[in-house]
Simulated assay, not measured.
Amino acid sequence: MISAAFTGFITGFSLILAIGAQNAFVLRQGLARAHVFWLCLFCAASDALLIAAGVLGFGAMVALFPSLPQIMAYAGAAFLAVYGLQRLIAAWRGDYALQLTGKTKALWPTLATAAAFTWLNPHVYLDTLGLVGAVSTDFHGAALKWAFGSGAVAASFVFFFSLGYGARLLGPVMQSARAWRVLDTGIGLVMWALAIKLIS
Rank of each mutant, 00 (worst) to 15 (best):
M1Y: 10
I2A: 10
S3R: 14
A5H: 10
F9A: 12
T11Y: 02
G12W: 07
G12Q: 06
A21L: 05
A24L: 12
F25K: 06
R28D: 05
G30T: 07
G30S: 08
R33D: 13
V36S: 06
F37S: 12
F37W: 14
W38E: 14
C40K: 08
C40A: 12
A45G: 11
S46H: 07
D47M: 09
I51F: 00
G57Y: 08
G57K: 12
G57R: 07
G57A: 02
F58I: 05
V62S: 12
A73I: 11
Y74K: 04
A75V: 15
V82K: 02
Q86P: 03
D95G: 07
A97P: 06
L98W: 12
L100H: 07
T101L: 09
K103I: 13
T104N: 15
K105L: 15
W108C: 11
T110M: 10
A112H: 12
A112E: 07
T113K: 09
A114Y: 04
F117W: 06
T118G: 13
W119F: 15
N121Q: 11
H123G: 05
H123A: 12
Y125H: 05
Y125Q: 08
Y125K: 11
L126H: 06
T128H: 03
G133V: 04
A134L: 14
V135A: 05
T137W: 01
T137Y: 03
T137C: 02
T137H: 08
D138G: 02
F139G: 01
A143R: 08
A147R: 03
F148D: 02
S150Y: 00
G151R: 05
A152D: 01
A152Q: 04
V153Q: 01
A154L: 13
A155G: 00
V158W: 00
F159E: 00
L163T: 04
L163P: 02
G164Y: 09
Y165R: 04
A167W: 03
R168P: 00
G171D: 11
M174V: 05
Q175P: 00
S176Q: 12
A177F: 02
R178C: 01
R178Q: 03
G186I: 10
G186M: 05
I187F: 12
I187S: 04
L194R: 05
A195T: 14
A195G: 07
L198C: 09
S200D: 13
